[in-house]
């Protein structure tokens, strides 16, 4: 009998329910909501301040999260630690299942755009930039709005999730067309 930890995939319902239980713990015990995208603001501000500290200090948006010179807020706080460990958690899960996969250009992308790494990496960069800009404008991402806000039945979060899904479906249909119908 192979142990449950070694299975490559778990039921999405088991995973979703476990994330729900995780949110009980973060809300109830830690006084926090699951989220990730604010950390990218803190990280961007911290990196930028190495080169241009005054510029970051004078920026009203960075000040919301990093504080001011007189009253600084920590860069490395709860969510920052969460985000840093996300990759480690995924690595452990993958290695337990014996996966040593390396993906440079995903199959679905290659079918449509060829196997150029430069093109894929460039598109990933632009996609990530547009996505995070949207997250900050909306006030959250798939975890902060999608899960934490969704479970609180927040008006802002359901508005975000529906807009995100509609735009994602339209974009995917345009970018990937039918996207290799051979599922499985």
């Amino acid at each position: 009998m192979s142990s449950v930890w070694k299975q490559p995939r778990w039921s999405p319902y088991v995973v979703g329910a476990a994330i729900g239980v995780l949110s009980w713990i973060t809300f109830g015990f830690m006084g926090k909501a699951l989220g990730t995208s604010t950390t990218l603001v803190r990280a961007a501000g911290a990196l930028e301040s190495i080169a241009a500290p005054e510029h970051v200090e004078q920026n009203a948006y960075f000040a919301k999260y990093l504080g001011t010179a007189a009253e600084p807020k920590p860069v490395f706080e709860w969510q920052f630690a969460l985000v840093l460990l996300l990759g480690v958690g995924a690595l452990i899960a993958a290695r337990l299942a014996g996966s040593k996969r390396r993906e440079y250009v995903p199959e679905l992308w290659r079918e449509r755009f060829g196997d150029s790494k430069a093109l894929r990496y460039g598109a990933a960069f632009v996609g990530g930039a547009v996505m995070l800009f949207g997250a900050r404008l909306a006030g959250g991402c798939t975890s902060g709005h999608g899960i934490s806000g969704g479970l609180q039945l927040a008006v802002s979060s359901w508005t975000f999730v529906i807009s995100m899904l509609v735009a994602g479906v339209v974009t995917a249909l345009v970018v990937y067309r039918k996207g290799g119908r051979h599922v499985g």
């Binding site: 992308w109 547009v130 996505m131 949207g134 404008l137 975890s143 999608g146």
Partner: peptide, 26 residues
């Protein structure tokens, strides 16, 4: 914000949390 997020996420193929986790998954 949601529309921009959806456009970017469909191109990248990840949201912020799953994107960072995906680095650990290779």
């Amino acid at each position: 914000g949601g529309v921009l997020f959806g456009i970017g996420m469909a191109v990248l193929g990840y949201c912020p949390g799953t994107g960072i986790a995906a680095i650990g998954d290779g």
